[in-house]
Every structure is written in structure tokens, then in C-alpha cells.
Amino acid sequence: MHEDQPTVVLEAVGRRSRKGRRILIGLLVTVLALILAAAAAVYLLTEKLGNNVGRVPDAFAGIPADSRPAASGGRTFLLIGTDTRSPDPTTGRDAPAGVSAGSQRSDVIMLARVAVDGSAAAVTSIPRDSWVDIPGRGTNKINAAYAFGGAPLLIRTVENLTGVRVDHFGVIDFAGFQEMVDSVGGIDVRVAAATSNAGVAFHEGLNHLDGAQALAYVRQRHDLPGGDLDRARRQQNALKALLTKAGDDLSDPVGLYDLVDATSRTVSVDDTLTNGGLRDLALEMKGLRPGGVTFTSAPVAGLGREGTQSVVYLDERAGVQLWSAFREGTMAQYVAAHPTEALAGTPN
């Protein structure tokens, strides 16, 4: 053996080792580049969707700070649907610049609270005809607050009524709801008894509804035993069905994107909810499933009339318990103790 052979061998091994390290480093750099590219794509995608969302300016303007309830854990949203009959959007990105969200009365009023870890949520409807005190306007139907003073007056009215602090505000019109339902290929709801509305027939049992049919479903109040109260339950049932369909679409990125895209284009939120805030909320709620959402309605003492108006009188005593549970994040326990107040599996 030549004396310099070990040196040659060692040099060859060293070259192979350096080459191996270069290949490994190259692979790591490539993987890192792909990860960064993917992260950038996700960021740009969420920015695009976030930019689609209409913003309601000054939703909390003029609400005296000392009159507001204390903040509680989780995030609370005041969600409303407007009762415009226009086929054109009045909320979201495509709403004309001259349309004011507060120019209509609110048809749907819901408080939604999401737990800090996003694993559970509670949704409680407030009947639109609830006879309540509206600050500066006297006693009137709660849905008049939105027409009188837009988001700030409705938020203040709801906070005074419930003792629940509203963190964010969201509004959608019925045209937007219809588009959201169509984006997921329709929803499935159960109906207690055959009925019809706006030319759409609903049979007893399971019904698959497209956007237009779902709109007729949530708008119906005539021929329902509870009138507006049953309509509020139908609105919750449709929301639950939409959440269920969204959960099914988690394994279908295209379907999920279509829903998120439709939502971003048709919903308006308060201008304190930034794109970053929307991303954080999405991350917080990624583990939320329909089974983790509790649906209830504000307790009702009875129906009556005030002048020419049909109104709903809320049960203030029972409401104290419900709103306390809502604030404290114990709605699941509340429903367990008051099962008749939960949304039925097959509402009218």
C-alpha cells in the first residue's frame, strides 16, 4: 500500500461528507422556502378574504364607557340580520356605497359567545318584537333600535337588557344568507309539520333546502303555532344546519373556501375587528363543532299588544338566570337544568 493512500481515502470521505452536508442543507433550505411560501400564500389568502369583509364604522361610537357591562371571558358577538326585501345586497362588500345598514329594522337578533379556547359557543336569540327600553327613545320593539340609531343604539339596548358586554358586531341581509347557503350546496333541516311559505312547500321530516328555499324557511311566521317565536327558532335551526355543513366541508378545502368566500363578501363587521383579528378568531374556533354550540332563546313571559303593535314581553326573572349563565360561559349547564329552553331537534 502506498504511504499516501490513507490520505487520499480520507480526502475522498471528506468530499463525500461535505457533499452530503451540502445536499442536506439544500434540502432543508428548499423545505424552509416551501414552508415560507405556503405561509405567505395562507397570509395573502386570509388578507384577501379579510379585505372582502365590509366594515361597519363606529359601531361603538357614543356608548358611555361607564354604562357598559364588565368584560367577561371569551368573545361575545351581537349578530343581526336585516329585514330588507331587496334582491340586491345591503351588507357586505357588494353593498352600494349609499346604503346605510341602519336604514332597516333588524329581523334577526342573536348574541353569540365563543369560549376562550374556542371549544364551545352559545347562541341566544332575542325576539325582534321584544318590548324593551331603548336609551333615549323610550319603550319600543327592540328591532326599532337599529333603525333609530344603527349599531351603537342596538348594542347599547342589548347590553342594558342582558348585562352582557358586546365585543363585536356583525350584520348580514337575507340576500347574503341565501348566497351562503348556496355556497355549501344547500342545508338540511327537519320540520315538525308540513307547511309552506312564499311558494315553497316544506314536508314533515328532513328537508334539503337551497338558498331561496332556506330564505323562505327562515322568513316564515304565518301558519306556525308560535309565530315570530317559531321563526326565531327556525333561524337558529338554519344557522345550526349551516354550521353542520361547514363542519362536513372541513375535509373539502374547495367547499370550505367557497363558504368562507361567500361569508366574507356578504357579512359586515365592526371596524375594530381587523384582518388579524379575523385570523385569530378562525384559529381559536378551528376545533368548534356544531355539537359544541348551545342554542337558546330569551325567556318569554307572553305576547300582547302595545297600541297597534304586536309585541313580545320578556320574562325578566328567568332572563336573569339565562344571561348570568351566558356571561359566565355555563350555558351547557343551564340548558341541562332547563331542557325546554334549548332549540328542539325538530322545531316548527
Rank of each mutant, 00 (worst) to 15 (best):
A115F: 15
L111A: 07
R137L: 11
S125C: 08
I109S: 06
R113Y: 10
D117I: 07
M110K: 02
A115E: 12
R128E: 07
V108H: 13
D117Q: 09
V114M: 14
A115R: 14
G118T: 15
P127T: 06
A112E: 09
I126T: 04
G138Q: 06
A121Q: 05
W131H: 02
R113K: 14
S119Y: 05
T124Y: 03
A115P: 06
A122D: 09
P135F: 02
V108Y: 14
A121M: 06
M110P: 02
V132W: 04
P127F: 05
T124A: 09
I109M: 06
S130K: 05
A112Y: 08
V114P: 08
W131S: 01
A115H: 09
G136N: 03
A115K: 11
I134Q: 08
A120E: 12
I126M: 01
R137N: 13
A120N: 13
I134N: 12
T124H: 03
I109H: 00
M110V: 06
R137A: 15
G118Q: 14
S130I: 03
V108M: 14
P127W: 04
V123C: 05
S130G: 00
V114S: 09
V132H: 05
V132F: 08
D133N: 14
G118Y: 11
D117V: 12
V116D: 15
I134E: 01
P135A: 08
R113P: 00
V108L: 15
T124S: 09
P135S: 04
R128F: 07
S125E: 00
L111K: 08
S125K: 00
V123H: 01
M110I: 05
G138Y: 07
A120C: 09
A120T: 13
A115S: 13
D117C: 05
S130N: 04
R137C: 12
S130T: 04
M110D: 04
P127D: 07
S130V: 00
M110A: 01
A120S: 13
D117F: 07
R128L: 07
P135L: 04
S130L: 03
A112S: 13
A121V: 02
R137P: 14
V116Y: 11
G118L: 15
P135G: 05
L111P: 12
R113S: 10
V132I: 11
T124Q: 00
I126A: 05
D133V: 10
V108E: 12
S130M: 02
V116N: 14
S130Q: 00
A121F: 08
G136R: 03
